[in-house]
Design a protein around this nucleic acid. Structure first.
Lengths: 115, 115
DNA sequence: GTAGTATTTGACCTAATGGTCAAATAGTCT
DNA sequence: AGACTATTTGACCATTAGGTCAAATACTAC
């Protein structure tokens, strides 16, 4: 693998890394309903403003959201249409995973199950 | 947001987190070509075996890959079909991002561009 | 059994991440 | 101008993640 390929992987991985945090994922899902100001995002995710602001900066840096000022408020919106599709797909995968685990568990009477 | 919703976000975020590393993303892309043994993955990504093994464990824990032993070798395969679609989409987003940056740069003669 | 190969795991260290608080910035209103 | 509101940024700390090496495990072949 060339160093150029590695650099490309690093850039792509940064997008996933930005989505790989519960607060940021919550913001992404919330913004799927439409544009929201920081104050409303803060109310929704339930942590303090400076924390939300930093998470928004991470998402912005990766081109996942964009912002727009209107008076004192700053509104954020999703700019990566497929982001929410990803989340849906991941939900499906997790559902299957839990299903399989349940199948393993129910097929085991000895109590010695699991990897 | 309830603590149950937060827990769900944490679980989903862990899947993205698993994809948010250049080595692991490289493995995912490599496995898109088909099942591969650890030794071939090691050759492809170019780090040492124990490192690859740990990254594979992360992917396995999130249900992104699954393994199968055949003699001495252990073969890994993708179990999350949409994973590679995600990567494609992210590539598109990054491409657009670079395009926008280029547009900003070319529209700026003063050298005072950028956020 | 021993020797050899493929892979995983544990111990350890360094670097990156995320949270919190205070201070700074950017705008509005009087 | 000053007071106020919304948001960002910087400094700091605690936790987590990633890399490396050696040791352990799991299998094959002799």
């Amino acid at each position: 693998m060339t160093s150029e390929e590695k650099e490309r992987l690093r850039i792509k991985a940064d997008v996933f890394k930005a989505m790989g945090n519960p607060v940021r994922l919550g913001i992404i899902e919330f913004l799927d309903a439409g544009e929201q100001c920081v104050c409303d995002i803060v109310d929704h995710v339930g942590t303090d403003t400076s924390n939300v602001s930093k998470h928004l900066a991470v998402l912005r840096r990766q081109g996942i959201v964009a912002d727009r000022r209107e008076g004192l408020k700053i509104f954020y919106r999703l700019t990566m249409p497929c982001a929410v599709d990803f989340v849906r797909c991941v939900e499906g995968v997790i559902f299957n995973r839990l299903d399989e685990q349940r199948a393993v568990m129910s097929g085991c009477g000895s109590g010695l199950c699991g990897r």
